[in-house]
């Protein structure tokens, strides 16, 4: 950046930095705009969490940074190749005093540029670091709208009647009057032959005529547990199980959702059920454990 170039006048070594003052101004403005855009990313992350806004902001940051670099490079390097000649006569070095006192000197503009680059860098650094907050404890984990007496409704909001479920069938249910999209809400309700049940002590009365309810959120990575296998001829076929389609974690329906296979680290949380007088199903208590993927800090 400071070496004299072949096509430059040897007697004016400052020409390379004084080439075009407006270029430096434009570069500085672009850098500051990039800083504003990445600050916008941080604001979007903290305030709305809207990934589209965040993507737009960080995208704009990199576009503006790129433009600033283009302007910066074009203003300083110019066109064509620059070959450094070693056999040049001794260049005239301006004294430090000359540079500092020169009106509109390159130092001031350099400082502006460096300052803008510093602000942009700091802002981009903040944008890179602030999302680490997402690695912290998930506030939703372990919370669930399921309470004793809350009714099960289907995706259309109709209460789930026990009689509609044939043995070997399943459906998805939600808590009445609560969020359907909250992690702790969706249930997979299955009906199996009651003679297959093998519940651990304390869960003997959690099923209603072979109808059992489990969290639909896999304890491994949080996918929807969308598969039920139920043998038509149990003597010769694998037993009833809920299977997650993402990594094939397999949970034993007959025994409290214990893991039979796959990467899940803990059993699928179960919801105790009971029958209301009108034949619909309701929760007889809270979920048996924290719902959601097996993040650190979840003890079972």
């Amino acid at each position: 950046m400071t070496g004299p170039r072949a096509q430059l006048e040897p007697e004016d070594p400052r020409r390379e930095v004084t080439a075009d003052p407006t270029r430096e101004l434009v570069a500085a403005v672009l850098l500051l705009a990039a800083a504003v855009a990445s600050a916008g990313f941080v604001a979007a992350y903290l305030l709305s969490g809207d990934t589209q806004l965040m993507g737009l902001a960080i995208g704009a940051t990199f576009v503006l940074l790129g433009l600033a670099l283009i302007v910066f490079a074009a203003g300083l390097a110019g066109e064509g190749r620059a070959v450094e000649e070693r056999a040049l006569p001794e260049p005239v070095q301006p004294s430090a005093g000359e540079i500092v006192t020169a009106p509109g000197s390159a130092i001031t503009r350099r400082r502006l540029l460096a300052g803008a680059a510093g602000v942009a860098g700091a802002s981009l650094g903040a944008a890179a670091i602030v999302p680490l907050a997402s690695l912290g404890p998930a506030p939703a984990l372990g919370r669930s709208a399921w309470r004793e007496g809350r009714r099960l409704v289907d995706d259309a909001g109709h209460p789930v009647k026990a009689e509609i479920m044939e043995t070997g069938s399943f459906l998805t249910a939600f808590p009445e009057g609560a969020s359907k999209v909250a992690l702790g809400s969706p249930l997979v309700v299955v009906r199996i032959d009651p003679s297959m049940l093998n519940p651990p002590p304390g869960r003997e009365d959690w099923a209603v005529d072979g109808i059992l309810a489990f969290s639909k959120i896999c304890t491994h990575a949080g996918c929807a547990v969308a598969m039920l296998r139920y043998p038509l001829f149990p003597d010769r076929e694998p037993g009833p199980a809920l299977v997650c389609p993402c990594h094939y974690s397999t949970f034993d329906v007959t025994r409290a959702g214990e893991v039979l296979f796959g990467p899940a680290g803990r059993q699928l949380p179960q919801l105790p059920l009971r029958l209301r007088p009108d034949g619909t199903l309701e929760a007889a208590g809270p979920m048996s454990g924290p719902v959601g993927p097996a993040a650190s800090g979840v003890d079972w």
């Binding site: 009647k161 509609i164 479920m165 044939e166 070997g168 399943f170 296998r229």
Partner: peptide
């Protein structure tokens, strides 16, 4: 309606 092998079955109410 049958739920062959390991497939779940769905009755007319569902």
């Amino acid at each position: 309606r049958l739920g062959p092998y390991l497939m779940p079955r769905f009755g007319p109410e569902q």
